[in-house]
Nucleic acid binder design. Structure first.
Lengths: 202, 202
DNA sequence: TGTACATCAGTGAACGCGCGTTCACTGATGTAC
DNA sequence: TGTACATCAGTGAACGCGCGTTCACTGATGTAC
């Protein structure tokens, strides 16, 4: 009954290996080096097999982007889980973002670098939905704090800008040049600063 | 004595027109549509002339990026000029960032989308220097507020993350989807929130 | 003044490489009956 | 049990288009003397 199931284990393992290779290829050579031939070579999967699983080079990039973003959002949700106060949640979120960036450099890089990549428009609707789904737990948590009067009253989107803005900007800077910003200083400085920006009842 | 001068007026006008065309081409079709043939067609400048002035397609992109970033930084410096207090400067900076994004959408888009473009590595040293020069006035101003004990003590880079992080993230979101974030709400919300994050003496 | 020369802006047909993609194929595994 | 068939994963040589780039050229403007 292999082919009645959603995805065969063999095929899935291949897909994972291809996404890993895609992220590694980009990490090494940027968009200029990101070709389907390079991904095929790195992953040791044939060109035909790549097209069998992903349909196109953009399909590979979209899949790698989607998996990376899901992992980031899951890491953030996990970092906030079990936090009792709004402040602890906010600070854990910021630290979680910085930690993911440093611990999974290549994936974080791929997330940020894909913002205006050519694959985004054609996969926008599907990718947008996946992002929204993975983002739900965080939305619920911080939305709850807003309703409880612990965070400034703002739309979910605006709250997100305040919460991840400084951390995301720091990550971007660090990803493009590790010497440009000190992550250790960011860990000391950003959680408290972000909290000051979003808390209610000063 | 035309050719003894730094740049002829005729040549400079052509270069400006090419940069305008490059930004317009990207704004319309993203990186997928950004080819030297498209820029030649849009600017009505021949391929040979493009190579005469810019050397390569990456040279065109780098020049357009540099000009756009300089304009942004000049707009921010102008927005802060004449502000008397640290708070007024911070809020003007944030509003200035949002205003530039909305008023010069295509240029703002080009700035953000170029972060990991293929032309960045090879032009990094020169572009980095130009960015630093245009950034100086802001560095001096806000560095002065830090020394005066009006803003939190942090490195210039970290202060920059706090000052432009939320506004930059908002801009990015709006540039990729205008419905995703409300710029009017951002104008109401972000200046005060950014001020809360960076002020000293709560 | 005229002649020769230098420099720069600009032209566009042509080239050739690299890229994404195709396609006819094999092999493995499972179903139908 | 055997035979025929279906589905999926995987292969890699080959193709052809589009892209960045080249190059021999013209024209305009200014200098040298």
């Amino acid at each position: 009954m292999r082919y009645r199931g959603a995805v065969s284990e063999q095929g899935d393992e291949t897909k994972q290996r291809v996404m890993d290779a895609a992220i590694a290829v980009f990490s090494k050579g940027g968009w200029a080096g990101f070709t389907i031939h390079a991904v095929a070579k790195k992953s040791r999967v044939s060109l035909g097999s790549l097209y069998h699983h992903f349909g196109s080079i953009d399909g590979i990039a979209a899949a790698a982007w989607s998996r990376s973003l899901t992992r980031l959002l899951e890491a953030l949700a996990k970092a906030c889980a079990n936090k009792r106060s709004a402040r602890a949640s906010v600070e854990a979120l910021v630290l979680g973002y910085l930690d993911f960036t440093e611990r999974h450099r290549a994936e974080a890089l791929f997330i940020h670098a894909s913002s205006w990549a050519s694959f985004m428009p054609e996969h926008a609707e599907r990718l947008g939905g996946e992002k929204r789904r993975a983002f739900m737990p965080l939305l619920v948590r911080f939305g709850g704090y807003v309703e409880a009067g612990e965070l400034v009253s703002a739309s979910p989107a605006m709250l997100e800008m305040l919460l991840i803005g400084p951390a995301a900007e720091t990550a971007r800077r660090w990803l493009s040049d590790e010497r440009a910003v000190d992550l250790a200083e960011a860990r000391r400085c950003l959680p408290a600063a972000t909290w000051r920006a979003v808390r209610l009842d000063s």
